[in-house]
Deep mutational scan, measured.
Amino acid sequence: CHSECLGNCSQPDDPTKCVACRNFYLDGRCVETCPPPYYHFQDWRCVNFSFCQDLHHKCKNSRRQGCHQYVIHNNKCIPECPSGYTMNSSNLLCTPCLGPCPKVCHLLEGEKTIDSVTSAQELRGCTVINGSLIINIRGGNNLAAELEANLGLIEEISGYLKIRRSYALVSLSFFRKLRLIRGETLEIGNYSFYALDNQNLRQLWDWSKHNLTITQGKLFFHYNPKLCLSEIHKMEEVSGTKGRQERNDIALKTNGDQASCENELLKFSYIRTSFDKILLRWEPYWPPDFRDLLGFMLFYKEAPYQNVTEFDGQDACGSNSWTVVDIDPPLRSNDPKSQNHPGWLMRGLKPWTQYAIFVKTLVTFSDERRTYGAKSDIIYVQTDATNPSVPLDPISVSNSSSQIILKWKPPSDPNGNITHYLVFWERQAEDSELFELDYCLKGLKLPSRTWSPPFESEDSQKHNQSEYEDSAGECCSCPKTDSQILKELEESSFRKTFEDYLHNVVFVPRKT
């Protein structure tokens, strides 16, 4: 048989008469490798580009789960590009990614509803959504962080984005990388972005840091009482949809009607710091009717980097990364020049730590249904340095008659930039024990000054392991946590139920 035959053949030295091919099969003959313009397919066939392209389009058009959109890589027609490569849609070739590779997620039936953290986790790592997304989240724990972890990498949506009755959302900033909504599939009414009845939605994105392009379709905003109209108009300008909307697409009466839409800028007039305090004062603000001013709200939190936005980490279910302080308005003076500047002394802060701070007014709604208010920009203030805590785990070892090696770990709280350490030492008198000992005694162990690591005695271990207080009263049991108490109650309830079950099964009433 021919060298490319495997198993047997019907005619000697003829690659077209093989029972099976050793390498690849091409047009009725066995070959060692697939010549151009053919590609290896499933490690035994040679196919042309049209064959591989037909497989790709067949799966793409069917949208069946589990099928493969075949691509070409290293002269092979394979189910998908290997790690580190992405497909070129024009020629199906796998090309190296520039940075992290995109991950295209194809949605069944063309859309997916995100109504819980669990459903959001199914899209973790996706960068391109081939379909439409509907966000409908009523509640949950730590929602802002969970949504950002699972949806934060999405850069492109081919269909539309719909935010509907998501009472738990305060902001859409968890879509931190969303840059493009194509609108290839539109919501009824030709809408590519749809926001309806979101009672706590206050911000779409921080438009000073976020760009969003909507290729096709219109915007729809109705019944978002805490979303200011200025935020919607800003989205029109940034996304390129200005002029597409009709009169009733953006409701003037049901958007922002319960919001404090600040239209003035508060400026800080005085800032002073110490290692654990920050004193702030800002310019006074009074609405047209000074009785509408209820006070100020001061927001602050630790910020290692200057990239904080107002609604980071917030949701309507209680999660809030900001510390909020309510401040009463100052006494009002008739003389504008003698107006008191409101302020606040922030206490209990960490030394040498940068804080993000902003302040906003708290006002009631005027009778004319106009909203007044003022808010400052987010500023960054760093507390002063102070003395560091003591170095940890000092170790001293003498390696000769004239040297001592000293080692330690950095302090747990540096409280500033540590530039150097101060080492103090003092000579001590020799131990009298060394002169009084009889060095001729056998088995004498000389006193040693070398360091030995501390260890816990058996008594201390027994005390720590004991669940009861000892007789001397030195140790006591740790208080039980809520989960331990709940577990004990469940076990007790189970024992009672099981005992009742045994009584009912074992003891049967005697027939009379």
Rank of each mutant, 00 (worst) to 15 (best):
S401R: 06
P288Q: 08
V397I: 14
S158K: 12
W282G: 00
S239V: 13
L392K: 03
H341R: 11
E155D: 08
W322T: 03
W344I: 04
A385S: 05
M346A: 04
W322Q: 04
S398T: 15
Q382M: 15
P391V: 06
N399H: 10
G131D: 01
K226I: 05
L151W: 02
D197M: 06
G313D: 03
K234G: 11
L143H: 03
R182F: 10
A195F: 14
T213C: 14
T127W: 15
N141S: 11
N387I: 06
L345V: 11
G240L: 15
K162H: 14
F299V: 04
F175A: 02
I163L: 03
D384C: 04
F174E: 01
L331A: 13
I135P: 00
P388N: 01
S338H: 05
Q339R: 09
T323D: 07
N190V: 10
F175T: 01
E310F: 04
S269P: 01
V128H: 13
L227S: 01
L172E: 00
E246P: 12
G373E: 08
L172G: 02
I357G: 01
Q216R: 08
N340Q: 12
T371K: 08
T113F: 02
R247W: 11
L349K: 01
S321I: 06
Q121A: 04
F175H: 01
S398G: 14
L161E: 00
L298M: 14
L345D: 14
R179H: 15
Y372D: 07
T127L: 07
I357S: 01
E264H: 03
N255C: 14
P287Q: 04
A120N: 02
K337G: 09
E111V: 13
S269D: 03
N334Y: 07
S376L: 00
S260L: 09
T113W: 08
E122S: 14
W282R: 00
W282D: 00
H106Q: 12
R179D: 03
P288R: 14
G343N: 14
S119K: 02
I134T: 15
R164C: 03
F268L: 02
K253I: 10
S333H: 04
K360I: 04
I137S: 01
Y160A: 05
M346D: 00
L227F: 02
N248C: 13
G110N: 06
E368P: 01
V359P: 00
C228E: 09
Y223S: 10
V324A: 06
Y191V: 04
N255T: 07
S173L: 08
P410L: 11
P391T: 03
H233S: 10
G159T: 01
T254N: 09
S192F: 01
F220K: 14
I135N: 00
E148L: 07
D289L: 03
T241G: 14
L196I: 12
A149K: 14
A303D: 13
D289W: 03
F275M: 10
S260G: 03
H233I: 13
G159K: 02
I188E: 05
H210M: 05
I379T: 15
G159I: 00
I188G: 11
G131Q: 01
E246W: 01
T127G: 05
H233F: 03
L133T: 01
T383K: 00
R244T: 08
S398I: 02
P388T: 00
T213P: 03
V325R: 12
N307P: 08
G343C: 06
L406P: 01
L266F: 09
F290P: 12
A356E: 01
F193N: 01
S239A: 10
Q121C: 11
L265Q: 13
V324M: 09
E155K: 06
Q403C: 13
Q403G: 15
I404A: 02
Q403H: 13
L151I: 06
Y372P: 11
C261P: 11
M235I: 13
K218A: 12
Q354I: 15
F268G: 00
L161V: 08
W322S: 02
E283F: 08
G240E: 06
M346N: 01
Q354M: 00
T353Q: 09
E156T: 12
P410F: 10
R164L: 15
Q245S: 09
N224L: 10
S230W: 04
N141H: 09
S389C: 05
W282Q: 01
G139Q: 15
N136L: 09
R202S: 12
L180T: 10
L266W: 01
A251V: 08
F311P: 10
H341M: 07
I214P: 00
V104W: 14
D257G: 12
N387T: 12
Y167F: 15
N211Y: 11
V390T: 12
G348W: 04
V363S: 07
L279M: 09
E283M: 15
V363D: 04
E155T: 04
S269W: 02
T215Q: 10
E368F: 13
E262P: 04
A149Y: 05
I232C: 07
S338D: 01
R179G: 11
E231F: 13
Q199N: 09
K177Q: 05
A303C: 02
V104S: 13
F290R: 06
N150C: 05
G343E: 00
G159N: 03
R182H: 10
S398N: 15
S132G: 09
L133R: 00
S119D: 14
K301P: 00
I134V: 10
F175N: 00
Q258R: 06
V381E: 09
R176Y: 09
T254D: 02
I395L: 12
R369Y: 13
V324G: 04
G125P: 00
P284K: 05
T273E: 04
L147K: 00
P342I: 11
L186S: 13
V359K: 00
E146Y: 15
L186Q: 07
E302N: 09
G110E: 05
E146T: 05
T213K: 04
G243K: 07
I157R: 00
S333D: 14
N263T: 07
F311K: 08
E237F: 05
G140I: 11
L180G: 07
D206H: 04
S402H: 11
R281M: 00
T353V: 09
T386F: 10
V104E: 07
S402W: 06
I232V: 03
Y380E: 01
T309H: 13
G183S: 03
A374F: 03
L362S: 07
F311V: 05
S338A: 09
I134H: 01
V359W: 00
P410E: 14
G139E: 15
K112Y: 04
E156V: 14
N263S: 08
T383P: 00
T215I: 15
I271S: 11
A259G: 12
D367P: 07
L161I: 13
I271L: 06
I157V: 13
K267R: 12
E184S: 14
M297V: 03
R347S: 07
D249W: 11
E155G: 10
D197R: 15
S260M: 08
P288M: 06
T113H: 12
A145N: 13
L161Q: 01
P394Y: 04
F193L: 10
K226Q: 12
F358Y: 08
S208Y: 11
L147E: 00
R247K: 09
V381H: 04
N387S: 05
R164P: 06
P342T: 03
N136I: 02
W282E: 00
E122C: 09
A259H: 15
K242L: 14
P388E: 01
K375Y: 10
G243A: 05
A120V: 04
T185V: 13
M235K: 00
N150L: 06
Q339K: 12
Q382W: 10
P410K: 05
L123W: 12
W344M: 04
G189P: 13
M235L: 15
T383F: 00
W352T: 10
E156D: 06
D335W: 13
K112L: 15
V363P: 09
Q199H: 04
I378V: 02
H222V: 05
S132T: 12
W408S: 00
D384N: 02
T273A: 09
K409Q: 08
Q258A: 04
I137L: 14
K267H: 04
G110T: 09
T241M: 13
S398R: 10
P336L: 06
Q121G: 01
F175K: 00
L180N: 07
L107Y: 08
N307Y: 03
P394R: 05
R347Q: 08
G131V: 00
R247F: 10
V325S: 13
P342C: 05
E231Q: 02
A168G: 03
G159C: 01
L349N: 00
L178V: 03
E111S: 06
L169Y: 05
V308R: 05
L153Y: 07
G295Y: 02
D206E: 13
P411V: 08
F290I: 00
Q245A: 12
S208V: 07
T323P: 01
Q354L: 13
Y300A: 05
H106G: 04
L151S: 01
R244D: 09
L293T: 02
Y191C: 01
R244A: 04
Q314R: 15
F175I: 13
S401F: 08
Y285W: 11
R247I: 09
L204H: 01
R281P: 00
Q314A: 13
G313T: 11
R244G: 11
L298V: 08
T353M: 03
A316V: 11
I278T: 03
N334E: 01
N340D: 15
I163F: 11
K337S: 13
S208G: 14
P394G: 04
N340P: 07
A120C: 13
